[in-house]
């Protein structure tokens, strides 16, 4: 296993945490890139790779809020292992099953982190931030799957214009 791509993923996550999260937020709804990346690694890579990448991603995400670091470690670790195990039981050739897996994983992470922070105003948070955030991240994952499957290519993108 080459470690280099994962270090780049972590830098991408660091860039998102420090700069891009604010820039890409829409009315406070942000992309949960950590959950997305952990899900993607879990879907395409091995269980241990997903687990260690999840822990590293949790440390990067938690570095900005130390009190959340244990929760991030726990939730992202559980997410990585669960998604990996589920991905072995579904047909990964199907885009729908991958998207379902992704949506479930992101929803789990968003919900768990939100509840760990505070349960006050949970339902308001759910409708105002969590579900839109899950959808926002899920769309990004969907675009990634489409690109990976060759359904979206640079040539097709250019042809739009």
């Amino acid at each position: 296993m080459s470690i280099m791509p994962y270090i780049l993923y972590l830098y991408l996550l660091g860039f998102h945490v420090t700069i891009f999260s604010d820039v890409s937020s829409i009315y406070g709804v942000t992309i949960d890139l950590a959950a997305l990346m952990v899900c993607l690694v879990a879907i395409y890579k091995s269980e241990l790779t997903a687990l260690w990448f999840a822990l590293a991603a949790a440390i990067v995400v938690g570095a900005t809020r130390l009190e959340m670091m244990p929760w991030e470690l726990l939730f992202l670790g559980i997410l990585a292992v669960t998604v990996r195990h589920l991905s072995l039981r579904v047909n990964l050739e199907s885009l729908a099953s991958r998207l379902l897996l992704l949506a479930g994983g992101i929803l789990f992470h968003k919900l768990a982190v939100s509840l760990a922070v505070s349960s006050a105003g949970f339902f308001m948070m759910l409708y105002r931030y969590i579900i839109p955030g899950v959808f926002y991240t899920w769309v990004l994952g969907w675009v990634y799957f489409m690109y990976r499957d060759g359904r979206i290519t640079w040539t097709k993108f250019k042809a739009l214009f």
Partner: peptide, 11 residues
């Protein structure tokens, strides 16, 4: 320490 390492090298 973990936060420092991640902060120093990545963030």
């Amino acid at each position: 320490l973990a936060g420092d390492v991640a902060g120093l090298f990545i963030l």
